[in-house]
Simulated assay, not measured.
Amino acid sequence: MTALGFLYPGHSAEDDYPRMEQLLGSDVRLTVVHTDIGEDAHRVDALHEMGSAERLEAGVEELRRSGAEAVVWACTSGSFVRGWQGAHDQVRGLARAAGIPASSTSFAFAHAVQEIGAHRVAVGATYPDDVAALFAAFLKEAGVEVTAVTASGIVTAAEVGTWEYDRVLALARAVDGPDAEAVLLPDTALHTASHLADLERELGKPVLTANQVSVWEALRLTDRRVHAPQLGALFTREPVVQA
């Protein structure tokens, strides 16, 4: 049994995790611990506070009791708003507090893009323009070329959590283009676990979403690979060997 822990801000699309646990098989357990979201706002100052050490560490003890072997801060915007170095400092502090390997959804995206062998990606963001631009800048720090960014201007995670498949697909289609080797949808408040195979079939290319890459990243931290086609190309491809 591989036990994985996730610190998830508030309540929006956390039901993606039991869906993914079912698709991963009986020997992977996903434990979600909810952190205090503070102010539900895709605004830089609120996002900094949402990902503060105090808020993250408040959930660590529950994760310890669950037997988690690795932990992911399952919030994209609450990590990349700190910049490349600040996001590193955030997960290092989380790893020290938890006593287990740690990462965040932002780094999960960077690692997942590398895993599928992509170099150019399009970003379909639910966020306002300024926050979406910070995610694109974070990806560039990771060596990823961003071909296009679409910002939907949604301020709250609560609203994002109400989006259904048609709206998620419209966002992905709006930003996709021939230069993009993959499409990224960076918001853990967005329900995508049930839609990945359909999204990839519609776009004809890999689609990486926040909850999906968060689970993949936690598996990566424990050196586990799981074949789960319904969770998209990320869970079916062999790792790319970098020359």
Rank of each mutant, 00 (worst) to 15 (best):
L208R: 06
R167P: 00
W163D: 05
V168I: 13
V168M: 08
T147S: 15
R173M: 11
T147H: 13
H191P: 04
T156N: 05
A174R: 15
H191C: 01
E164T: 12
R201H: 12
R201V: 05
L184C: 09
L203R: 10
K205Y: 01
L184P: 08
A180K: 06
V160N: 02
A157W: 01
F135P: 12
T188V: 11
Q212W: 03
A174I: 04
D166G: 13
P128V: 13
L199N: 00
A157Y: 03
A197S: 13
K205G: 01
R201Y: 05
R173P: 07
L203Q: 09
R167Q: 11
A157D: 15
R173K: 15
A136S: 14
Y165W: 10
L203A: 10
A132N: 06
L203C: 10
D166L: 00
A142N: 14
A210H: 02
R173N: 13
L185K: 06
V149P: 03
K140R: 15
D176I: 02
W216C: 04
E145W: 12
T147G: 13
T150R: 13
D187V: 01
D176Q: 07
L190G: 09
D129L: 11
G204V: 04
R167Y: 02
F135H: 15
D198I: 00
A180S: 13
T156D: 07
G153Q: 07
V160I: 15
V146M: 12
A158I: 08
E164F: 04
W216S: 04
Q212L: 05
Q212V: 07
A180Y: 05
A189Q: 05
G177C: 14
A170T: 10
L199T: 01
D130F: 11
D187T: 09
L196C: 02
K140V: 12
T150M: 10
T147I: 14
E200A: 08
V215C: 04
T192M: 01
V183H: 07
T150K: 11
D130T: 12
T192H: 01
T209F: 03
S194P: 00
T162F: 08
N211H: 03
T192R: 00
D176E: 11
D129H: 14
G153Y: 08
G153M: 06
D198E: 12
E181I: 11
D179E: 15
A182L: 04
R167D: 01
A172F: 03
L139N: 08
E202K: 03
A193M: 07
L134R: 15
A170I: 04
G204H: 05
G161S: 14
R167M: 04
L208I: 09
L203W: 09
V175K: 03
W163K: 12
A180I: 06
P178A: 14
R167I: 00
D179Y: 10
I154P: 02
A210I: 01
A133V: 04
A182Y: 08
L134I: 11
G204A: 05
T147A: 14
A174P: 02
A158F: 12
V213L: 02
